[in-house]
Structure formats: structure tokens, C-alpha cells
């Protein structure tokens, strides 16, 4: 459920501001003050905790694309190229 602080912290970051700082936070590029504010918000807001978790999952998925094999269309195109090339071989196997 939504966790709203009982008293409105006027100094605190809102969720809307928080999500814009996530990359700088993950990159270690926040100023010490913003870093504190960011971490405070993170400690009290479940929604933003899940947001950061989703962002980490996103990064994990992206990293897995690297291991991805050649796309199917690419493979099919290559196979067609190979077959066309095979026709040009002088003594092709029966």
C-alpha cells in the first residue's frame, strides 16, 4: 500500500522528483545532500523501493541481451546467402 508520511515533510523529495534521480544515484553522481535526501525517501516509500527494484531488474534484462544469439531473420538470411554461394561451387557434393 501507499506509504505517505504522517506529516508532510516539506524538505523531503517527492516520488516524482525521486524517479528523476535514480540514474544519478545508481551512477554515484548525486551530491552528498541529494544522496541523503534520496536515501531518506527510499527508506520511507515502498512505491519508490519497488521502482528502484524494477530499474535494477531492467538493467539485468538489458545485460542479458548481450548473450543473445544471432536474430532468427539474420540467421535465415545468412543461410540463404550460403545456399546461393554453394551453387557456385565447382564440384559440389550431391
Amino acid at each position: 500500500m501507499m506509504m505517505i508520511p504522517i506529516t508532510k515533510p516539506s524538505e523531503a523529495l517527492t516520488c516524482r522528483e525521486f524517479v528523476e534521480l535514480v540514474t544519478d544515484y545508481l551512477e554515484g553522481a548525486l551530491t552528498p545532500l541529494l544522496q541523503d535526501q534520496f536515501e531518506f525517501h527510499l527508506s520511507i516509500c515502498e512505491g519508490c523501493q519497488i521502482y528502484v527494484e524494477q530499474m535494477r531488474q531492467t538493467l539485468k534484462f538489458l545485460g542479458q541481451l548481450n548473450e543473445a544469439a544471432i536474430p532468427t531473420e539474420g540467421k535465415e538470411k545468412l543461410l540463404a546467402t550460403f545456399r546461393a554461394w554453394k551453387q557456385t561451387l565447382p564440384n559440389k557434393a550431391p
Binding site: I4, T14, C15, E17, C45, E46, G47, I50, Q54
Partner: peptide, 9 residues
């Protein structure tokens, strides 16, 4: 509560 989630992720 401007700027806080309506329905959070």
C-alpha cells in the same frame, strides 16, 4: 501530497 504516487509500481 503533490508528487507522491497515486498507485505505486
Amino acid at each position: 501530497y503533490a508528487g507522491w504516487w497515486i498507485l505505486h509500481p
